[in-house]
Design a binder for these strands. Structure first.
Lengths: 358, 358
DNA sequence: CTGAAAGCGCTAACAA
DNA sequence: TTGTTAGCGCTTTCAG
């Protein structure tokens, strides 16, 4: 015989309305309420009307938590971003959000703040079943306690970055780099500088190696180029500029390729303040195509990434994988160069005239 | 007599490890596993060790969903932002995230994309019990189906915006505006322009009214100032510049106050390209203190908002309210003017010399 | 210190 | 078409 025990409820009932109250008010079972919401065709018009009325009267909203527990999915996607303050990512996030919203998913943003320690939190989130899928904008797979995020049995895709072993949505860094170098080489530049992304970053590697390859193809030795270590952010553009300015004027590169617009903009401003003229003395090219590139002086030649599209597409392949139960598939987007004011032919130099005259 | 029914499980068991499997492996009850995690002191060392071992062996991570259902809280905060692509908000988000992470909360970002239709989604989220608290960076309270987000019995606070009836964390727009005008008036400007935020926006109203008040106090008629409608974003700065350029050179304002750095930067670039010199012909002041203000030409005089701090503080008052069960309390942060290159005394003009001579 | 069992809100399988 | 009921994973009484 079952013993009657008084209800053991959790803390603070918070007074929110449950499906039971709606069912009671409508004079039907909870199952009917549930069905009226999910599969209205299978509920009689009268019952449906009563339920609708009861819902309106009570202001009922189904509990997402209860639903998630039962359905074993949360309809939430985690987006891991290296640094949320970077406007480059912001636009991608918008694209992701647009697509996700349209597909009935919400998103949690996992901001790493460029700190590895922050990864643990999101690894737990994924293993804890808090999200249905993951989109990575970071250059590596978050890991903690010996577990990598992609091993949780949840689909993962990378956006804008190529992580070995993971499906991706991105523009091809190699092709993009080649476009940039084709432009600079076509302008007849021979002395180059390269402001890099953080070491080990997959985009950085792709861009740099294509940069070097272009140099070789043009009969130049990649080793002669100047390399300045950066991290995609503004400050490292300033640092690169200081190193540039420390060079003898005659030995400075005449063309500088920055692996991000942020670095390019900070670089331009810093050398410009020191009296170097752009593009007369030095040409500068950026990468990403952030909006501010059109509002600095001179306006920045850059390789725009279709960020919104990249985000949308990333979300789309993930959602598709979620629906089908398969793995997301990789997509590569086209890119082209946006030529503005910051690039021009190199200065003639002390010997420039001679060569011509000869 | 109870009839044996076979287990009715949901779709795809997904094979994730539950507390039961850990309990079985450790040879204890699920209650003990739960306690070993939450209140280890109340578990015997042996049991604790066995549980720890079992957890390690299985790779168990507690289900956040199961926990939420039981605990009736999700440890998640919703942050509603008008437009996630705006770098101004990004930095605030970072501050919020920092504080939330430290307090054991996660965050969901609700991107409105400046569209009212998007509000419904987040209103449902809150009423559906998906979040424990809300932080609003938007100028109004999201509402849908006749329900306002702050009526869900969940604490809500506003960051950087003043919404009547809601606790807030922000810098005082009136005082900030006064600081700007003091600077411009001190430089002896007499003809002013104002590039506004979106109509009805609370910050916009605060800034504009203080702008007008400062004018009156200086013996000028606010009605003589030029007002250009903007929306805080880059494009509206360009539009304002076009209107400025359409004015007779002699009737143009000599000082322009833009209610956001974005508009100020776009305004400067546009009139600069048209041959207007800044600050010699026109002084420009922005609002917010975004990083790019230091990298445009000329560098922008602005009123920096302590965005990271604003975010942290917003999260802090919310978390405190969550803990105490009370309402969040309002905080006002100090601000000061950052004077850079874009402001200077007005040009003498055709009659400037005369006055002096007289 | 530990285990049994109830139940958070919801949905799906089954029976009627 | 509808109701009954089990159970998703977890925590927490209550009893031992």
């Amino acid at each position: 015989v079952a013993r009657i025990t008084r209800t053991r409820r959790g803390p603070d009932a918070k007074g929110s309305i449950t499906i039971r109250e709606v069912a009671a008010k409508a004079g039907v079972s909870t199952a009917t309420v549930s069905r009226a919401l999910a599969i209205p065709d299978q509920v009689s018009p009268e019952a449906r009307a009563r339920v609708t009325a009861a819902i309106k009267a009570t202001g009922y909203t189904p509990s997402a938590v209860g639903r998630s527990l039962r359905a074993r999915n949360t309809k939430i996607v985690l987006v891991v971003v290296p640094n949320i303050a970077n406007p480059f990512f912001a636009e991608i996030l918008r694209g992701i959000d647009d697509e996700l919203a349209a597909s009935g998913y919400g998103l949690i943003i996992g901001n790493l703040d460029n700190l590895v320690e922050r990864e643990a939190r999101y690894v737990d989130l994924v293993f804890g079943g808090q999200v249905d899928g993951v989109l990575l904008l970071s250059g590596r797979i978050p890991a903690a306690n010996g577990r990598r995020m992609n091993e949780a049995g949840v689909p993962v895709a990378a956006v804008c970055v190529n992580i070995p072993g993971l499906p991706y949505v991105m523009v091809n860094d190699g092709k993009a780099s080649a476009l940039i170098m084709e432009h600079l080489l076509g302008l007849r530049h021979r002395r180059f500088g390269y402001i890099s992304g953080p070491p080990g970053n997959a985009n950085e590697i792709g861009r740099r190696s294509a940069f070097r390859k272009a140099l070789s193809s043009a009969g130049l030795d990649p080793i002669d180029a100047a390399y300045w270590q950066g991290d995609f952010m503004l400050d490292s553009g300033v640092a690169a500029a200081r190193q540039f300015l420390a060079l003898d004027a005659g030995r400075r590169p005449t063309a500088v390729y920055a692996a991000s617009d942020h670095m390019a903009i900070a670089f331009m401003k810093t050398i410009g303040s020191a009296g170097v003229r752009i593009p007369e003395d030095v040409s500068v090219v950026g990468f990403d195509g952030i909006e501010f590139g059109a509002f600095v002086t001179p306006t920045l030649t850059t390789l725009p990434q279709p960020r919104h599209e990249l985000g949308r597409m990333g979300a789309r392949v993930l959602v598709e994988a979620l629906r089908s139960g398969g793995a997301p598939e990789s997509v590569e987007l086209d890119a082209w160069l946006l030529v503005r004011e910051s690039t021009a032919p190199p200065p003639r130099g002390p010997h420039g005239g001679k060569r011509r005259a000869g």
